[in-house]
């Protein structure tokens, strides 16, 4: 791939001087300066020409990604009224306010638990599901389509459906739990899952896993399908058992897919907002908030402090992603 590309461009470089040669035969007066600047301009042009191709993408990233980051950081050091008027610089005041929020510590701890638990469970389940969907069985096509559903449906809708299903006095899940004898009575504290912070958090993690599963499963399924069948055949000929084959062939060859899927999941789950917002609004108090809903609640009254929370959030994601890449030594894997 790389060889072909450089080959292509180098022949281009060799070719290009040829048509320009006639310019050397131009009248003497003009030949002097143009003869010297010509190649220089051309060289500059050549070195700039990739910019033509990369430029739009760079501009897009600058406008859509980098500029908002600049605005976010700038906002976080301004004193802004709840109606969006800038009242002057706040210096580090917003950060001071943020770090003295009594709820912040809990929010950060919860965010870590939320991200780690959801991603780990998602990946483990996805590995199993991908293996299953890679087998031949009647109805596989339908089953694969069905797997898309939680992914295709709006996350907000899914969250709302779960909230209603968990209604303490008449939710379907509670009615079912009562019918199988796990719940003594409807409308009790026990049935009010979303009212108890810990139970609410566990249920919301369940919903987060539910909506993250399809993507991870498809990513791993795609990875599984790239593993050549001959390898499995050879292993079987050598007398390797199923578990051994899985550990020594499937998992190592699946590693790039696992890394990419995990990374994208970490980012998504860390920033997850609609599930928590629709199911508990981060409450009671802030006891089921992760950093993103917490930032949103702050925004209603304290825009600057909310921006400071965004900056913190942003820093955390970058640190987590870099740590993750370092830990998985992805360079060696992906080369």
């Amino acid at each position: 791939m790389t060889d072909q590309l450089t080959g292509g461009s180098s022949t281009g470089a060799v070719d290009s001087p040829a048509p320009s040669r006639p310019s050397d035969n131009a009248p003497a007066g003009a030949a002097g300066p143009s003869g010297r600047t010509g190649p220089l301009a051309r060289r500059i042009g050549q070195s700039l020409s990739p910019l033509l191709w990369v430029g739009p993408a760079v501009a897009l990233i600058a406008v859509v990604v980098l500029w908002p980051v600049v605005v976010m950081v700038h906002t976080s050091i301004q004193h802004i009224s709840p109606d969006g008027f800038v009242l002057g610089s706040a210096g580090g005041g917003n950060y001071g306010d943020l770090f003295s929020e009594p709820a912040l510590k809990g929010v950060l701890i919860r965010t870590v638990i939320w991200t780690v638990a959801v991603v780990v469970v998602t990946m483990v389940l996805s590995l199993a599901a991908a293996q299953l969907f890679n087998q031949r069985f009647p109805g596989r096509r339908v089953a694969r389509w069905a797997l898309i559903m939680p992914w295709a449906a709006s996350v907000m809708m899914t969250a709302l459906i779960f909230r209603w299903s968990l209604n303490a006095s008449s939710g379907v899940i509670n009615v079912f739990l009562r019918d199988v004898g796990l719940l003594h009575r409807l409308g009790t504290n026990q049935a009010d899952w979303l009212g108890r912070p810990t139970a609410a958090l566990v249920w919301m993690m369940g919903v987060a896993v539910f909506v993250s599963l399809p993507f991870s499963t498809y990513a791993l399924l795609a990875g599984l399908q790239t593993i050549p069948a001959e390898l499995y055949e050879a292993a079987r000929v050598d007398g390797a058992g199923t578990w051994r084959i899985y550990r020594s062939i499937t998992l190592p060859l699946l590693r790039p897919a696992i890394i990419v899927a995990t990374l994208i999941n970490v980012i998504n789950v860390f920033n997850s907002f609609p599930i928590i917002w629709e199911m508990t609004r981060g409450g009671p108090g802030y006891s089921t908030s992760t950093t993103t809903p917490f930032m949103f609640i702050l925004k209603q009254s304290y825009i600057g402090e909310s921006a400071a929370m965004s900056v913190l959030n942003f820093g955390l994601v970058i640190v987590v992603v870099l740590l993750f890449l370092r830990l998985t030594r992805w360079k060696e894997q992906m080369g």
């Binding site: 859509v64 990604v65 976010m72 980012i267 907002f273 994601v317 992603v321 890449l325």
Partner: peptide
């Protein structure tokens, strides 16, 4: 990866 990280953050923001 970095762009994806930044992008999804900004989008969610």
């Amino acid at each position: 990866a970095a762009v994806a990280a930044v992008g999804s953050l900004v989008l969610s923001g």
